[in-house]
Amino acid sequence: MLWGILAIIALAALFGLLLGLASVVFKVESSPVVDQIDALLPQTQCGQCSYAGCRPYAEAIAAGEAPINLCPPGGENTVQALADLLDVEVLPLEEEEEAHEGPIVAVIIEELCIGCTLCIQACPVDAIIGAAKQMHTVIESECTGCELCVPPCPVDCIEMVPVKQTITTWHWPEPQYDVNHTPAGNIFTTIDQVLAENAHP
């Protein structure tokens, strides 16, 4: 009896030691969870999550202080990806207002700009250039559409506009027509509405 117990204890100690050693020797370096979370966030740095930027939000999620559904620019996809990464349940997106359809960028109405540099200071990604008393300009390709430059502007000369779709950004849509969702009528009609219904009323 005693020997049995001792043997078991000895075995347990041995395997415990082995496991402990293995975890040290074969340690797998994985990038810290904060980096992984940060990589999934859209990096708009908009602060809509109430944190000072994407990385602080990532840190908060990692620390368990923030839920995963505070990022409107990332949308459902980001929530889904975060849920997958952290193995938690998908939460519905917390939205304060109607989300925008598609990406947006800031545009400065140049006639109104007084060159106060307030927006330049507000921009988290340095996408606005200009100097004091000189007109400012948004570099469109760098703008993340975070809207942080809108409130500081004293003359309300910054507008958020949807990014215009062009031939190069156009997309084949996902096919939507199958027997289970029969659309009404011919959804493909064009060539100028089949030459205005072949010139008949």
Partner: peptide, 10 residues
């Protein structure tokens, strides 16, 4: 784009 924004922000 997100990576670029992150870099610029940092």
């Amino acid at each position: 784009k997100a990576n670029l924004a992150r870099e610029r922000h940092e």
